[in-house]
């Protein structure tokens, strides 16, 4: 039975009318047309669907939408745009990290929440922070470099 609820996404409040058992990922993608978060497994096993819930990186694929009500949700679109990418997004461009791009939402969302907590991470810490984000194209080393670059920009800023 559809139920109407208010979701705070990327600093705006949206009213959605969905089955309360729907996972947040589907609401973001199908109802709010936010396509940053991706479906890769639906079982917290790949990280493609990562969003920020009150600033923390979590999977949106196993979060019943009603459990997200009242929390601040941020998606990739909330970080930056094509015209004005966030420093992390820019770092991913500068390092040419992307291949097929499907895992990249998860990489950027996880890395940006991580950097907010650990502004000066080591390479190993970055790798550990990203261990729940799978990439099949093999971008790993460039992604770590992109996060290092973003950290450097952050420290200079």
């Amino acid at each position: 039975m559809a139920k109407t609820m208010a979701l705070k996404v990327n600093s705006e409040t949206h009213s959605v009318s969905v089955d309360p058992g729907t996972m947040l990922l589907y609401v973001l993608r199908d109802d709010l047309k936010l396509h940053g978060p991706k479906f890769g497994c639906g079982l917290s096993e790949c990280g493609a669907c990562t969003i920020h819930l009150d600033g923390k990186a979590v999977h949106s694929c196993v979060l019943p939408v009603e459990a997200a009500v009242g929390h601040h949700i941020t998606t990739l679109e909330g970080l930056g745009t094509v015209e004005k990418p966030s420093p992390m997004q820019q770092a991913f461009i500068d390092e040419q990290a992307v291949q097929c791009g499907y895992c990249i939402n998860g990489m950027i969302m996880t890395a940006s929440a991580f950097l907010a907590q650990h502004p000066n991470p080591s390479r190993d810490e970055i790798k550990q922070a990203l261990n729940g984000n799978l990439c099949r194209c093999g971008t790993h080393m460039r992604i770590v470099r992109a996060v290092q670059r973003a950290a450097k920009t952050g420290r200079q800023a």
Binding site: K38, E77, L79, T81, V82, P85, Q89, Q96
Partner: peptide, 21 residues
């Protein structure tokens, strides 16, 4: 040459099969 679609992919603007409006 830098990837032409790089910006679109890091910002969620690139459309994959499921995502066309």
């Amino acid at each position: 040459l830098a990837r032409i679609e790089g910006h679109a992919k890091v910002t969620g603007a690139a459309r994959y099969a499921w995502e066309h409006d």
